[in-house]
Deep mutational scan, measured.
Amino acid sequence: GSKLPPGWEKRMSRSSGRVYYFNHITNASQWERPSG
């Protein structure tokens, strides 16, 4: 298991139950796992 880039964390969408990734530094969110 590799770590996520700085700022990123795994989140669960309440509406759909899907996992997404959220960056608390930039407030960005995306479905794809961030690389870096």
Results as ranks from 00 to 15, higher is better:
1 G>A: 12
1 G>D: 15
1 G>S: 12
1 G>T: 12
1 G>K: 11
1 G>E: 15
2 S>T: 13
2 S>F: 10
2 S>A: 11
3 K>L: 14
3 K>E: 15
3 K>H: 12
3 K>S: 14
4 L>S: 03
5 P>D: 03
5 P>M: 04
5 P>I: 02
5 P>T: 02
5 P>W: 04
5 P>N: 02
5 P>E: 05
6 P>K: 07
6 P>D: 10
6 P>G: 06
6 P>F: 11
7 G>L: 02
7 G>V: 02
7 G>N: 06
7 G>A: 04
7 G>S: 03
8 W>P: 01
8 W>F: 01
8 W>V: 00
8 W>Y: 01
8 W>H: 00
9 E>C: 12
9 E>W: 03
10 K>F: 05
10 K>L: 13
10 K>T: 10
10 K>G: 05
11 R>I: 07
11 R>P: 01
11 R>H: 07
11 R>M: 07
11 R>D: 01
11 R>F: 04
11 R>L: 07
11 R>C: 15
12 M>Y: 15
12 M>W: 15
12 M>R: 13
12 M>H: 11
12 M>L: 13
12 M>G: 03
13 S>Q: 12
13 S>D: 15
13 S>F: 08
13 S>I: 12
13 S>N: 10
13 S>Y: 07
14 R>W: 05
14 R>P: 14
15 S>W: 07
15 S>A: 12
15 S>I: 14
16 S>E: 08
16 S>F: 06
17 G>Y: 03
17 G>I: 02
17 G>Q: 07
17 G>P: 02
17 G>K: 09
17 G>T: 03
18 R>Q: 09
18 R>S: 04
18 R>D: 08
18 R>M: 08
18 R>F: 07
18 R>H: 08
18 R>K: 12
18 R>A: 09
18 R>E: 11
18 R>V: 08
18 R>T: 07
19 V>E: 13
19 V>F: 12
19 V>D: 09
19 V>L: 07
19 V>P: 10
20 Y>A: 01
20 Y>H: 04
20 Y>L: 02
21 Y>K: 00
21 Y>E: 01
22 F>P: 05
22 F>K: 04
22 F>V: 06
22 F>H: 09
22 F>A: 03
22 F>G: 01
23 N>A: 01
23 N>C: 08
23 N>T: 01
23 N>V: 00
23 N>K: 00
24 H>P: 10
24 H>Y: 15
24 H>N: 13
24 H>D: 06
24 H>L: 13
25 I>K: 06
25 I>S: 06
25 I>T: 07
25 I>G: 05
25 I>E: 10
26 T>G: 01
26 T>V: 03
26 T>R: 02
27 N>W: 05
27 N>K: 15
27 N>R: 14
27 N>D: 04
28 A>M: 15
28 A>K: 15
28 A>V: 15
28 A>F: 07
28 A>Y: 10
29 S>N: 05
29 S>D: 02
29 S>M: 15
29 S>F: 15
29 S>I: 15
30 Q>D: 02
30 Q>H: 04
30 Q>N: 03
30 Q>W: 04
30 Q>T: 03
30 Q>I: 03
30 Q>L: 01
31 W>H: 06
31 W>D: 08
31 W>T: 07
31 W>M: 08
32 E>N: 06
32 E>K: 05
32 E>F: 06
32 E>V: 06
33 R>G: 04
33 R>F: 15
33 R>I: 11
33 R>Q: 09
33 R>E: 13
34 P>S: 01
35 S>V: 13
35 S>Q: 11
35 S>M: 12
35 S>Y: 11
35 S>T: 14
36 G>T: 11
36 G>P: 11
36 G>N: 12
36 G>C: 11
36 G>K: 10
36 G>W: 14
